[in-house]
Simulated assay, not measured.
Amino acid sequence: MGELRVRSALVTGANRGIGLGLVQHLLALPNPPEWVFAGCRDPKGQRAQELQKLSSKHPNLVIVPLEVTDPASIKAAADSVGERLKGSGLNLLINNAAILKMNSLDTETLKDMSQVYTTNSIAPLLLSQAFLPLLKKAAQGSPGSGLSCSKAAIANVSSIGGSITEMYMWETAQCIAYRCSKAALNMLTRCQSMGYREHGILCVALHPGWVQTDMGSSAGHVPPVTVDASAGGMLKVLSSLSEKDTGTFLDWEGNVVPW
């Protein structure tokens, strides 16, 4: 697999965990993107300090205020990114922002399930809708036929927790809303792959592994995969994707994950 080559990329939930790792890896590529947009809820806040440090060293990194559950914030982010790109389009949208509630089948609530669904399933739909004109523009401006991430792509960061076949770690963490939201995100990815193929946009769902983040450690165990390995692996997988891969569900090592 070669290195990912994109002119522009946007990562949501980029202030920590996997999102921050993806931004760091994009900036460290041998041919880094001309623009890396890092979406985060509070760019000036305590939790965005690492991002702020990075942006002071990398003029191609732009921190974009983005609350993924707020349509007005999504529209403002799309407008801001569009202005910066000056008509060239966005090559890669990585829908990474997500939340987890440790609720069981007996303790799941309407409030928590609604919140998790809104962030994990509905937000990627709204973001993809808002950035679709920029993704289309990138696809139209790229030479050659076929689909690839260097042309235009949506990568939805999903989870093996959304696999109906696997029911991964059921005994340890039921996380009902999270599992259901990621299964829904997988279906959204399939729908997007069908609907956006004609526009030259590749769509894929990625399982990042069980990663050593605040979310990954919330079940009380030390996850086996580092942020560095997960982020680097996902970008390698993205670099290798072609038309045959649109609508698939893959892990950070490129293996097919059962639906």
Rank of each mutant, 00 (worst) to 15 (best):
M1F: 00
A9R: 01
G17S: 09
I18N: 06
Q24S: 11
P30R: 08
P30Q: 09
G39E: 00
G45D: 12
Q49F: 11
L51F: 09
S55F: 03
K57L: 09
H58P: 00
I63E: 07
P65V: 06
V68A: 10
D70L: 05
P71W: 02
S73H: 03
L85K: 13
G89D: 13
I94V: 15
N96A: 05
N96L: 10
A98R: 03
L100N: 07
K101W: 14
S104P: 12
L110K: 13
S114I: 08
Q115E: 15
V116Q: 03
I122F: 14
I122C: 07
A123T: 13
S128T: 15
A138R: 03
Q140Y: 10
V157P: 06
V157F: 08
S158M: 06
G162K: 04
G162C: 09
T172K: 13
A177E: 02
T189F: 11
S193L: 03
G195L: 06
H199V: 00
I201K: 07
I201C: 06
I201M: 05
W210Q: 08
G216W: 00
S217L: 00
A229I: 00
K236E: 13
K236R: 15
L238D: 07
G247H: 08
T248F: 08
D251M: 04
W252Y: 14
E253N: 12
P258G: 10
W259C: 11
